[in-house]
């Protein structure tokens, strides 16, 4: 626990120092990373802590983004806009989740995919409101009570604060009864039911919370990007976020955030050299799946256990079993 607090403080320091060392472009990029990290963590929650693999999570992101875009001109209060985004996406997650969760694992994946694509199609087809495929401008100034925030550093601070808040919320959630119980359900659903838990309620609570967070990320994106297009709801985007989760590591909170950082960085870096980023991304994913060992966060753990293993070996001590297995593989 102490170690976690230490890491958290180090992170705060880095987040504080970054704006002073980065260019405006860099600051902008890191702001986007914070938003995507929130989004990826929300998906990481249902994937890694509840065993629900969704390919439609961008649907909630899109709801958040379009809520800001569509209501922005009518509601000048940023807090209200954020609140509406969270409520709408959470409500939608609650209603759709109640239906989706009854189905089996593959069905859930396919249905969520169709659901995200439905919102994509609606954003595309309801041209009179959304501007269709061309997307729409967001005219909602971000104002949190101390003046309009337009400077890159201002935006950066808001996104960093949002990220920290969401991270803490998630941390509290996974330690809470519902968080522990839903993880128990992921491991052994039949037994949880026999112990007296209504498993659907717990899955639904988690899914709703996750959907609301994705909506929150989407609304931040609306404020950040000042432009939204149907692509924010497409299943391809859902898949990319799933990539971030996998790159970082399923089953941890911070892993997906790290994955989001790496993904956005690579995307921007490679896109400056070639238009063929999708091919490279697809190929990277294939390679990651074939040779990756559970994502970056687990590589760290692996590395650490290896170092400790060597130390322990020298002191002629007991070595954990899984490390031995890794040694054989290599």
């Amino acid at each position: 626990m102490k170690k976690n607090i230490l890491i958290f403080i180090v992170f705060l320091l880095i987040a504080f120092v970054l704006p002073f060392v980065l260019s405006v472009y860099g600051i902008d990029l890191v702001s986007e990373i914070f938003i995507m990290a929130i989004f990826a963590m929300s998906l990481g929650l249902i994937m890694g802590y509840a065993g629900m693999v969704s390919l439609g999570h961008a649907g909630f992101f899109g709801i958040g983004a379009y809520t800001v875009a569509l209501l922005g001109p009518h509601i000048p209060n940023s807090y209200l806009l954020l609140f509406f985004s969270i409520c709408l996406s959470g409500l939608l997650a609650l209603v759709t989740g109640a239906i989706f969760i009854r189905t089996s694992k593959f069905y859930f994946l396919m249905i969520t995919l169709a659901f995200g694509q439905l919102l994509f199609a609606l954003a595309w087809q309801l041209k009179q409101w959304t501007g269709g495929a061309d997307g729409m401008k967001v005219s909602a100034p971000l104002n949190l009570g101390f003046g309009e925030i337009v400077s890159p550093i201002g935006i950066y601070s808001v996104m960093a604060a949002a990220f920290i808040i969401v991270y803490l919320l998630l941390r509290f959630f996974v330690e809470s009864p519902v968080g522990k119980i839903v993880k128990g359900i992921m491991e052994n659903e039949a037994r949880m039911s026999a112990l007296g838990y209504d498993v659907r309620i717990y899955k639904l609570l988690t899914y709703t919370f996750s959907g609301a967070l994705a909506g929150f990320a989407g609304s931040l994106y609306g404020f950040y990007n000042l432009f939204v297009s149907p692509d924010v709801s497409s299943w391809m985007f859902s898949g990319q976020v799933m990539m971030m989760v996998i790159i970082g590591g399923v089953g941890t909170l911070i892993g997906p955030a790290i994955g989001a950082g790496l993904f956005i960085f690579l995307q921007n870096f490679i896109s400056t050299y070639t238009e063929r980023w999708p091919i490279i991304m697809g190929a990277l994913l294939v390679i990651l799946v074939l040779v990756g060992k559970g994502g970056i966060i687990h590589w760290f753990a692996l590395l650490k256990s290896k170092i400790f293993y060597k130390k322990r070996k020298n002191s002629d001590d007991y070595a954990p079993q899984h490390v031995e297995k890794e040694e054989v593989v290599n």
């Binding site: 919320l169 509290f172 959630f173 330690e175 809470s176 009864p177 519902v178 968080g179 522990k180 119980i181 128990g184 491991e187 949880m192 112990l195 007296g196 838990y197 309620i201 609570l205 919370f209």
Partner: peptide, 27 residues
């Protein structure tokens, strides 16, 4: 299987607790 004895008992005991629907307070 991946949880400790204590965590197994926690899960079993919480099933009949009123706080089993709590979302942000550590179990």
């Amino acid at each position: 299987g991946n949880l400790t004895v204590e965590e197994n008992l926690h899960l079993a005991l919480t099933a009949t607790k009123r706080y089993r629907y709590q979302m942000f307070h550590a179990l």
